[in-house]
Simulated assay, not measured.
Amino acid sequence: MNDTVSFGYQQVDPAEKTRRVGGVFSNVARRYDVMNDAMSGGMHRLWKNRFVRRVKPRAGEDILDMAGGTGDIAFRMADLGASVTVADINPDMLAVGMERAADRAQTGLVWTEQNAETLSFDAAMFDAYTIAFGIRNVTDIPAALAEAHRVLRYGGRFFCLEFSTTLWPGFGEIYDAYSHKLVPQLGKWIADDEDSYRYLVESIRRFPDMARFEAMIAEAGFVRTKVEPMLGGLVAIHSGWKV
């Protein structure tokens, strides 16, 4: 890793980024889903549904859902019969997910506090690894991708849902104006936290574009990598296989 990494538009020590990102998600945990609805006009639910359809979870499969604290992806996959382990570095996000699972009477999920860069699981434990809107907040992304590859069984699949850079002419400028000016204000009005949502917007801008991130997935050892852009690439589903 470099001596410094990006925290939004700032360069900070890697340990400092991990600490700051933890603070962001502790701050927003209780209002996370409400803010997602407000920021995306509810479209994040459609993106997640599409993502899970691409994963194709099946009964009898073991799936690791990384950075899945609130349970959004895990609930969808468990409803299709998969055995899901929900992992997140942030205990406050996990607490929200466990409360939501109790409200839904959703049993059978495993909840565990994990750092994506240094997972505690043995090698070749899972049939699929999913991460939705979480990889850009990881301090050492190549390390996290290597860990995803390690814990997958041969024939296992990696799926990532993440924001990227739209290629639609004109739309990028409109979205930039919206995200930089309105999203922090929404954070202030709804979650009483303008700074955290300013960071989340900035983290999207600093994330690698679709081609570069696909190359990073391949560099981690995955094959048959693929990118499925939505809204011209504003959001993308990345995938790869361990063979």
Rank of each mutant, 00 (worst) to 15 (best):
I237D: 09
K188R: 15
A101L: 13
G22D: 07
V201I: 07
E16L: 14
R20N: 03
Q114M: 04
I135H: 02
R136T: 04
S179N: 14
V110L: 09
V243F: 14
H149Y: 15
A124E: 15
A95H: 05
E61D: 10
W47Q: 10
T165G: 01
L231D: 11
V243C: 07
V52E: 01
F213Q: 02
I237W: 07
M43T: 12
M1K: 06
P57R: 07
A124N: 14
V110D: 06
D103W: 06
A218E: 15
R50F: 10
F7N: 04
S203H: 06
A132I: 10
A191M: 07
V84K: 08
P142Q: 07
S239F: 03
R206M: 15
L200V: 12
A236K: 10
L231T: 14
P57W: 09
A211S: 11
S196V: 03
E147Q: 15
D140N: 15
A215Y: 10
A215R: 14
L167M: 01
I237E: 12
M39N: 12
L234F: 13
V96R: 03
E117I: 04
P14N: 11
K188T: 02
A67S: 06
M66N: 02
D65T: 04
E162C: 12
G187W: 11
G170A: 09
P208W: 07
S83E: 06
R76H: 06
A15L: 03
G156E: 00
M35Q: 11
G240Y: 05
Q10T: 12
M230G: 01
E117R: 03
